[in-house]
């Protein structure tokens, strides 16, 4: 009894609520005769394409910046790189790889500048990050209209600029998902996607245990301590910001290939919030996070969303109830985490 109590405490109330909610949804799936295998396949893909975006929170929280609400900056880098890869008609895995490589270059520059800015606004990183993200996304709306892209596949057939959504069929639609894909019964296992996620998570896990990772952790959790030990906390924060932006850029490319299209203009505006919510559900706080938190959180959060969608549409055929749930859950968990910051102080 005591053991379970301690276990519950360790797991935390929010996670219990989420798991209970997931259970209810799964029961509903059973009752409503929704094809379970299809839901499971979708669930695996959703977890896979979202996990790198959530992983972007790891370096930022560990380096002391906190939850990176400026994730859209990284996403923009990824989108820009993606557009360049499409412009030059890179296809298949090569296309994805090229997009990632280009995005890393953009992300390093943007992440570095963003890190410099965040070092000047310590204590307001979340708010500044959010609105920097919003500003850049809306500035990019103009850029998408006037940047000199020529490939007719990505431009509006008539009028100015790039399309709102760009279907990836001719380039690398689901290229990673379908790599070495096999089926267990009816369930599709996207081996390539799972392997990619595993590689990124593994690299971050190794990073956390490396000298640089441990130094970054010290700088993030106690800047004064790290200063005493001869570590420049500001530099660590910049490294954290760069890594987070790089992961954001790569994350959106993986997301887009699994999803089937790139979404430009205002689409990246709110993309930081589900990523933040996912890691918080996984047990991270504004100052503490591990790869385990990211994986667990994305699993729970994306499972809920992918199970909720068919359930919701079975109950309310019109409208998008699962979207409403997503809003409530993701913002609710962020509010919960914010109220905890206050108590710590």
């Amino acid at each position: 009894m005591k053991k379970t109590k301690r276990y519950i405490q360790k797991l935390g109330v929010p996670r219990l609520i989420m798991l209970a909610f997931l259970m209810i949804l799964l029961i509903a799936v059973g009752i409503l005769h929704i094809p379970f295998t299809l839901t499971l396949s979708q669930c695996i893909v959703r977890v896979g394409i979202n996990i790198v975006l959530a992983l972007a929170m790891l370096p930022s929280i560990r380096s002391g910046i906190g939850m990176n609400f400026g994730l859209p900056l990284g996403i923009i880098c990824g989108l820009l790189a993606g557009m360049i890869s499409l412009e030059y008609n890179f296809t298949g895995l090569m296309g994805i790889l090229m997009a990632m490589l280009i995005s890393i270059i953009f992300s390093i520059i943007v992440g570095w500048l963003y890190g410099l800015l965040l070092n000047k606004v310590k204590g307001s990183e979340m708010m500044v990050g959010t609105y920097m993200g919003f500003s850049i996304v809306s500035l990019m709306c103009i850029a998408w209209m006037i940047l000199p892209f020529h490939n007719t596949g990505i431009r509006w057939p008539m009028g100015n600029g790039l399309r709102m959504t760009i279907t990836l069929e001719q380039w690398y639609d689901r290229a990673l998902n379908e790599l070495w894909m096999f089926k267990i019964g009816e369930v599709e296992i996207p081996t390539g996607l799972i392997l990619t996620c595993a590689v990124f998570c593994g690299v971050m896990w190794l990073f956390c245990r490396s000298r640089l990772g441990i130094r970054m952790l010290a700088a993030g959790s106690n800047p004064e301590f790290s200063k005493f030990s001869g570590i420049d906390a500001n530099r660590q924060r910049i490294i954290g910001s760069i890594l987070s932006t790089v992961l954001g850029g790569i994350g959106i490319i993986i997301y887009a290939q699994g999803f089937g299209f790139y979404q430009l203009y205002t689409a990246p505006l709110m993309m930081a919030f589900p990523a933040v919510a996912a890691v918080l559900i996984g047990g991270a706080t504004a100052s503490k996070i591990s790869v385990g938190n990211v994986v667990l959180g994305t699993l729970i959060f994306q499972s809920i969303l992918s199970v909720a969608a068919p359930v919701a549409s079975a109950i309310f055929p019109e409208g998008n109830l699962s979207e409403v749930f997503r809003t409530i859950i993701s913002n609710g968990i962020i509010l919960y985490a914010l109220s905890k910051i206050g108590r710590e102080e």
Binding site: G123, F273, R326, N331, L338, S339, G342
Partner: peptide
């Protein structure tokens, strides 16, 4: 409960309330 972080809280609260 979130002294010093009222703005971000207010903003997220707005999104939450929207849901």
């Amino acid at each position: 409960k979130t002294k010093g972080q009222e703005m971000i809280t207010g903003m997220i609260l707005g999104y939450f309330a929207k849901g």
